[in-house]
Design a protein around this nucleic acid. Structure first.
Lengths: 191, 191
DNA sequence: TGTACATCAGTGAACGCGCGTTCACTGATGTAC
DNA sequence: TGTACATCAGTGAACGCGCGTTCACTGATGTAC
């Protein structure tokens, strides 16, 4: 049955959010259109009202998945970057792939997917780098910081052991590159 | 028709090598048993002579994929670590996923796969960390170095732009953490 | 060493299942008057 | 504002395709004598 325009928009948002979560958890190929629709509280037939294909959903969901981290990085107060780094290098981030960094959760799949999803993740990644560079006042520092964060979480997930993951997070939080970067970041944007 | 024992072993090796390459390029779900067998010069029916299931192949291929990088890290001469880092932070490594680091190419899939592949990648990752720690004389330094390497290649692949990838590689090669780590590595094992 | 037979690596057709996509249908919403 | 009709979001069955796996078969290899 037909829904209100508002309800339709909410349906589409739920589909996007659940797709973003499930894709990060199970991978694009590991999630079916029916899975996503069921998670959003619908049946699979209605999917094509919202998206022309599964590939189009993947691209839109990948783009949408960057909204949350980019929003956090652009919060006006001075500690936004420190919070971002603390949350990134946390055991919770290692465990909760579905709600974690979309670069860590989607970039491997994006490289193998159709052009639209690949472009969405590439643009999102550049946006995160740009937001970090804005905070740090230096593009090279943004690259250094994001490499450590991304590599740290990938490494901690790869070892598949909570204790080892915690150690990796601790070492990287204490490591000079991250701390130095954060210090210089706070110096540049003390507001 | 039956083959010699040697030919059978070579067939199995070819299947493992091609599976490792294709899985890193296209992902586990993106490669069919028939694809792997065709790449190894056979038809799909013979697959089950060598492996009981596709999952078992994934685990065996993941384990085998670590042989090459671990071998390079354990070469006796003093520059093995420097060569490993130079090759890791190179544009060629960003582009050639099929022959690149198995952590970068397989860990995302491993986290979603059955236990055997997950365990194989986890063990391989720990072995790489141990080999780096042996070279550097310090486990924490191994974590810091591998995080930068892994994160750098993931980031360069994610932006999907050869020029940006080259910039990321250059920044990380010049960055103090990697260079410092290498310096201390050479000091500890000058032999 | 030579011979006869059993073994088994690899072939290619077939099966069954799940998935992306399509489609006829439903009934509440939106709109024209 | 109220009414009649057109629209369309969502349902659930169906289709076709690809994939993992099985199986009967082939013929060269390995082995027992």
């Amino acid at each position: 049955m037909r829904r209100t325009r508002e309800a339709t928009a909410e349906s589409r948002s739920r589909v996007l959010a659940e797709a973003g979560r499930l894709m990060r958890e199970r991978g694009l190929a590991g999630v079916s259109v029916a899975d996503v629709m069921a998670a959003a509280g619908m049946t699979h037939g209605g999917f094509y009202v919202h998206f022309p294909s599964k590939d189009a959903l993947a691209a839109a969901a990948a783009e949408a998945a960057f909204d949350e981290p980019l929003g956090r990085l652009k919060e006006p107060d001075a500690h936004a970057l420190a919070r971002y780094v603390d949350l990134y290098l946390s055991s919770g981030h290692v465990a909760e792939r579905g709600r974690g960094c979309p670069i860590a959760g989607l970039s491997t799949d994006a490289g193998r997917a159709h052009d639209d999803m690949c472009a969405a993740v590439a643009q999102g990644t550049r946006n995160v780098l740009a937001a970090l560079a804005d905070r740090l006042g230096h593009g090279d520092e943004a690259i250094r910081l994001l490499a450590v964060l991304l590599g740290g979480v990938m490494l901690a997930r790869s070892v598949d052991d909570p204790l080892m993951a915690e150690r990796i997070m601790t070492v990287l939080r204490q490591s000079s590159p991250v701390v130095d970067t954060l210090k210089s970041g706070c110096q540049k944007r003390p507001e």
